[in-house]
Simulated assay, not measured.
Amino acid sequence: MNNETPDLLIYTTEGCHLCDIATQVIASAVDLEQVYVELVDIAEEKDADRLIESYGTRLPVVRHLATDRELDWPFDSATFAHWYEVVNE
């Protein structure tokens, strides 16, 4: 696993139950030994105002860093797996 740069960011915030579900869905769809996923609490980042404006009503959002493509909730494991396959082509 690459511990330097994440493959995926999951934009989240404290108490977001949908974010917890999304994290479980992602964990069931990819091998977390091979895919480095980082949780980003939008309220805790130095650019929180910008992140809250961009993501506050869309949480959870998954961002693929290599392509900057995003997947907004709702998604299930099949939808996520297909999206992840496409962004990695």
Rank of each mutant, 00 (worst) to 15 (best):
P74V: 14
F75Q: 06
Y11D: 04
K46F: 12
Q34E: 10
E44V: 03
H64E: 05
T79P: 02
V87Q: 01
E70F: 04
K46Q: 14
D49T: 15
V30H: 02
T57G: 09
S28D: 14
F80K: 10
T79Q: 06
L8G: 03
T12P: 06
E44P: 02
D49R: 15
I26A: 12
F80I: 07
I52F: 00
E45R: 08
A66S: 13
F80R: 01
H64W: 02
N88C: 14
Y36E: 04
D41N: 09
L9C: 07
V40I: 15
H82W: 08
P74F: 01
E14T: 10
T5V: 08
H17L: 08
L18V: 07
Y84W: 14
S77Y: 08
C16I: 15
D76G: 15
I52Y: 00
T57Q: 12
A29N: 00
D72I: 07
L32F: 10
V86T: 07
R50V: 14
E85R: 07
D20Y: 15
A78P: 09
K46C: 13
Q34T: 13
T57Y: 06
T5C: 04
I52P: 01
T23L: 14
E89M: 04
I42G: 00
A48P: 01
E33S: 15
V86Y: 02
L51W: 00
L59Q: 08
A22H: 00
Q34S: 12
A48Q: 11
N2E: 12
A43G: 11
V61H: 01
T5S: 07
C16A: 15
C19K: 02
L8K: 02
V62E: 01
E45A: 13
N88E: 10
T5K: 10
R58G: 03
V62M: 02
T23Q: 10
Y11S: 05
A29G: 01
S54A: 11
V61Q: 09
E89W: 05
L32Y: 00
V30F: 00
T5R: 08
N3V: 13
S54R: 05
G15K: 12
L18I: 04
D68W: 02
G56E: 06
I26H: 01
S77D: 15
